[in-house]
Design a binder for these strands. Structure first.
Lengths: 336, 336
DNA sequence: AAATATTACGATAACGTTTTCGTAGAAAAC
DNA sequence: GTTTTCTACGAAAACGTTATCGTAATATTT
């Protein structure tokens, strides 16, 4: 019971292949009774058009790629969910590629996508990406690209982000108002748009509230979880220990908790902690973690919506279309 | 600078299309100098073979589908990561489909996959699936299927699971040994293999240790998070309150924490809690959550490995090949 | 009644690969 | 020197769709 195609349907119905094809696509060129005959037999024989033949002929695959640094992470998982939801609605298929925060993997994925396998790409940049030619080449091949969260400002493409600068500012301000005198900032790869902006928000808030900026309070966490843990532990064990920590990503906030536990520091008494995070368990941690929560699901949906709008040429949007969805500060006991 | 194909390469090189094609696939029929010329020009012109033409001709897409109920969930996210890792190694592409725990969505996805879009499918069943014809039809179409975690025992296909029965037993046993007299079990859709087996482990442990089995201690959590929360709260607020809770999935353990918080119950003093979970923050919760952690990443890798073995016809495995990876009990303060 | 338009369909050429088959020319065998 | 075997390539037919073009048979207009 295998592989029924147009030719077989046509023979069975005493019609030509082209007529059957058109009937199935509900063309006005085909009479209603003929269409009905075709529909009925197609259903009866469980005809499924070969997507590869169709894609080859139409130069459209109804497939998009999602390229992200990591999936075992609430933010990206939710974003995927948002993207998949919209894709499903639109009848598109979603290929997923994980770069593991590795710039060279991102490059090889992008190179691969030049084959025309997908109609469009939704991407969040990996941590270690230096040059971005691989992405520009996608654009040159007329493969629409939409960034989300970790965008690349030097490339003209729609971008879906949160208000990272403001969030960085608000986060720092919140720690200051909670009484912190020396606030550390844990950041990831500084090549990333988000790191940059969150950091700027941090420094501007320090400035605004006359708090000193200290180099030693900036910890670049670009290694493995273990390496980052050690860096954070060292920071907390130093005699210049911060009394507030602003973690720019979820995992770093988690490591702060582990480090405090190991060092016997009590949050928030000894050090107040705040982190970007979409942890569902934030409120259940000991103590509950104050977070900046990004609208990950909505960001995914928005990115997908923009991409499909481009693919279906519905609206023409400016090449540097930018959607900014606000993140929200959720105050909990780790900063009381 | 768009779309270079074999024909253009051939013309440029004064060769035939077939020669170029063979040269690129490193065929022994082509002389070394010719191959070199072809390779050089292909690289120079950045030739990327059209995957759809290739798939159409070869009847192989080098693409697999991953069908899962949910992604915003540590278990499934890690499994995806495992699958993607192996797929990348093998040069395969990964399509992702989320069924949102909805049987009818799973059916429509499966129906769609009959088109031959993918060479194989890795699937974890959705909660509400009743009949499984859509999956049998995949098999009939010669599309290999591998199950993981939530398997379907009535279908002959390789399965990658954890030792759910033993884990259910061990979990319950652990609660009993911790002094619990009345242990509740929170379960999801009882149509699922995992629910069934974990439940059996639970009841057998009760039997083994002469604890009474009570219907009211089984709570079927098949609704939304909110609905489940209410059910759990009711359970904990009843005068027949359990002193131990075994949650069969992560989210339910989280809801138990929320319910306890709302009711002012203290874990583990008033009620001990244990849950299946891959939460990275389990040890940071208040109190730290005792978990049964599944080797999600390894399960994903294993499922993918099995699928590719079938696709590449390397080894012939029995149709009901079953890999059981052990989950591990991680005792923390919620059951002390 | 002739000319024109419309309806409903068929033949066929793409799309870009891979593969089967065939064959010049060189090398080897006799 | 003739036959046979390789070697290295080309022509062409697939794969299953969709799109272009053409055309019988009606229907409509003049």
């Amino acid at each position: 019971m295998n592989k029924v195609n147009l030719k077989q349907l046509a023979k069975e119905l005493n019609l030509s292949v082209s007529t059957v094809s058109r009937a199935l696509r509900d063309s006005w060129e085909i009479s209603t009774p003929t269409k009905q005959r075709v529909f009925d037999l197609a259903k009866k024989m469980n005809f499924q058009p070969n997507p590869y033949a169709s894609s080859l002929r139409k130069h459209r695959s109804r497939t998009i790629a999602v390229v992200i640094p990591e999936v075992a992470n609430n933010f990206f998982a939710l974003a995927i969910k948002g993207i998949e939801t919209i894709a499903r609605e639109k009848g598109y298929h979603v290929l997923i590629y994980l770069t593991n925060e590795d710039g060279s993997e991102e490059m090889s994925v992008a190179a691969n996508l030049q084959s025309g396998r997908v109609d469009g790409v939704i991407l969040s940049m990996s941590g270690e990406t230096g040059d971005v030619r691989h992405l520009m080449e996608l654009q040159q091949r007329n493969i629409p690209l939409v960034f989300f969260d970790r965008v690349c400002d030097s490339i003209e493409a729609p971008k879906v982000v949160t208000n990272d600068y403001e969030s960085g500012f608000v986060a720092t301000e919140h720690l200051i108002k909670a009484g912190c005198q020396r606030i550390a900032h844990l950041t990831i790869s500084m090549g990333l748009s988000i790191s940059h902006k969150r950091m700027k928000g941090y420094t501007d808030a320090l400035l605004r509230y006359d708090k000193p900026y200290e180099d030693t309070m900036i910890v670049h966490c670009e290694g493995s979880d273990e390496e980052n843990f050690l860096k954070i532990r060292d920071l907390l064990a130093s005699d210049q220990r911060p009394d507030g920590i602003f973690a720019s990503v979820e995992m770093l906030a988690v490591q702060v908790y582990h480090a405090c536990r190991e060092l016997g520091l009590e949050i928030p008494r000894d050090v107040k902690v705040l982190g970007f995070s979409n942890l569902v368990t934030a409120s259940l941690l000991s103590p509950a973690l104050t977070t900046i929560a990004q609208p990950a699901y909505e960001m995914g949906k928005e990115a997908a919506t923009i991409l499909f709008r481009r693919l279906e040429k519905k609206y023409i949007l400016t090449p540097d279309h930018r959607v900014i969805l606000p993140a929200r500060l959720e105050v909990r006991s780790s900063t009381l």
